[in-house]
Design a binder for these strands. Structure first.
Lengths: 225, 225
DNA sequence: GTTTTTTTGTGATAATTTTCACTAAATTGC
DNA sequence: GCAATTTAGTGAAAATTATCACAAAAAAAC
């Protein structure tokens, strides 16, 4: 059985990590797979399978030591060192990310933001907002690997190309368009807020219609999507 | 074979819709399943399966009429009428959503935002920012069904409970916590920006390590996550 | 020390989701 | 009109993902 480390597994790992942090803060020392599963919304078997995939093992009847498990997950998720990230686009979403409260504590450092609009530039801020033209050099000089695209749809592909040419290896893309990138070694993770909202709207309507006339095959029964 | 209308299918539907809008703007009249697949990043068979699930049919050899297909998708996705939405939390993300440029055009109307901080309130704006205490009445009086949670983690569950009690049926949750909601008929869609970013970071590191020493089982080979 | 209980780790199984591959229909070219 | 070609629609197959269920280990109880 070849079980792959896929996107979903890693997302769950991040959630386990978050849950463990809370448990740790509450003073707990050990945790069982069903505690973690309950906290994250998956089965205990799923938790154990995920861990086994990364060679994480606990103690039979003893569960997992929270501290060491947390350390292991931190290491797997690359939390060992500070991860520098840049943001292209200092509009609404870009600014929200620049000020995202927990990034700093979590080892994610927004090194700079870039925009095409001179009015948005702030060179003297703690997180400077520079000209988009300066982005390639900034990426190269600072060895930035991760970029966030928060520019309008029309500019997104161009910004993506520039990022990749300058050395960016992973992109979180908020522009509502599918970015094409020839390089197989570049990871692109799209986040489309409108589509996420439309998804909620769809299921609210679908549930509304199936209130009491639900046919057998309609397994529309969601709480968490 | 019972194929379910699931989250992913609806997400794809939204993407097809978006692609169709672009095709339509470019003056195209008809489209084939492989055009749509290519635009969205899925196979043509996937496109046809998705459509067949909703009883959408095209013409053999003729493809699909863009206009009528677009109308059908709009209807399925509830684009017939304006969907009113409220936002709890007028912090960075809340404000970004309030000013999200395409919501208006797409029939999504942010009716109001709510915050606990008096300094953030703006009763006279086009999209007013009101006190969180006013939220329940606003939801009831305006028959709001969809809510966005963009408050700090600590307040999210409480806001969720209030929303649901007041009649909200679907929630887009940006707080980095799993919301519990007893009501099976309430849909919750979590969007965790930090976790999405961590996902990119993980795969960038994973790809970096497996540059030329990739073992057989490591199927880490991603472009779009 | 032995029995009982609990919980991990995992192979087997089930469920879900996607892709394949082929039929049938429509269009085009001649 | 007929053959060739293209593309939708879909059952079957494959691939992926999640769950079950049970053996083995550790701890607790007695």
């Amino acid at each position: 059985m070849v079980m792959d480390v896929n996107r979903r597994t890693v997302l769950r790992l991040s959630r386990y990590r978050k849950a463990l942090q809370r448990f740790s803060e509450l003073g707990f020392v050990k945790v069982f797979s069903d505690n973690l599963g309950e906290a994250v919304g998956v089965t205990s078997a799923q938790v154990r399978k995920d861990f086994s995939l990364f060679g994480i093992s606990g103690n039979k009847r003893g569960g997992y030591q929270i501290d060491s498990l947390l350390e292991t997950l931190q290491r797997i998720l690359g939390k060992g060192r500070v991860q520098k990230v840049i943001v292209a686009g200092a509009g609404n979403i870009g600014r929200a990310l620049i000020h995202y409260p927990t990034f700093e504590k979590e080892g994610i450092q927004i090194a700079a933001a870039f925009d095409i609009d001179p009015a948005k530039m702030h060179r003297k801020e703690r997180i400077p907002v520079l000209s988009l033209d300066e982005m390639p050099r900034f990426i190269e000089e600072n060895g930035i690997e991760i970029g966030i695209i928060a520019v309008p749809e029309i500019a997104a592909q161009e910004v993506c190309d520039r990022m990749v040419r300058s050395g960016i290896r992973g992109i979180l893309n908020f522009a509502p368009i599918r970015l094409r990138c020839g390089d197989e070694n570049v990871v692109i993770n799209p986040v489309n807020l409108q589509i996420e909202l439309e998804n909620v709207i769809y299921f609210v309507h679908a549930l509304g219609k199936n209130q009491d006339t639900a046919p057998v095959n309609d397994k529309i029964k969601v709480n968490h999507l």
